[in-house]
Amino acid sequence: MHPAVSVILFTVSSGAGFGLILMAVALSLMGWVPGMGPGHTLVAILIGSVLATIGLLSSTAHLANPKNAWRAFFRFRSSWLSREGVFAVLFYPTVLVYLISLWLARDTGSLAWWGVLFGILTGLLALATVFCTGMIYASLRTIPQWNSALVPANYLLLAISSGTVILTLIAAIQGIELNVLSGLALVLLVIAGLAKLLYYIWIGKPQGPTLNTAMGITRAKIKILESGQSSRSFLNKEFSNQVPAQTVKQMRWVVYLAGFVIPAILMLIVLQTSMMVLTALAVLLLLGGLAIERWLFFVEARHVVNVFYGQ
């Protein structure tokens, strides 16, 4: 699949933003992080909303006819893309009410009952939006590498783990104790890394339709003689890519190291030393690693149309 920059930026940025919001809401409601008051949560939610908004705005950049984008909210019953749009839009008034309740509670430290309610709603909407993003890809039977429950699971785990690492950085800047946050980030990074490893092993298996099932001639070798076109059409530009297998292999190492292993080691050091610089480094590496992870997610996906071109 063609890796569109706007879609990579969208999924990484809004994923991290919604993950940050989900974790900030959950941890502050549970009161698991000592010293994290409504004022601190307020800043985290604001930063998360900015990240999510950057992502959602950049997602409209890949539309060829954005003047009709408002129509995308009306097929909630069948389309995952529509569901994602609806949840993303519902998120804004909900988070606004939650932010107001946090603002009112910043001095007293105790959140009103409606603040708790809207906090839970905000977290659930963030979760639902990321899940829908994953399901847009996982619902496509035409792309065997995406048509799996591992895809939404990966999207959710990566969103939550990257959100927690960012939340650790915010807490470090705010001067909150980092033990719980960096420990949690470490555990989530390990789980997300294992899930991604599982995904890479799974897509390594040959799967999906072949030229034989496409032509109904199942007992002979078939090769393409003529594609019937003298240059690359929309189908080739959108669905095939010429990234060498060697590059893909190397990029997987970059994903493992920058996206999981090094941030996890950094979180382990932060757990012992609470050094802010290392937390910032972990955030930068992680976001870079996730951008490459998302690029690979598209590059390694093989749409079945390629079968007709003998690829």
Partner: peptide, 10 residues
Amino acid sequence: CMGCNLCSWA
């Protein structure tokens, strides 16, 4: 149509 390409993917 808003040109999101999703139907061509499907």
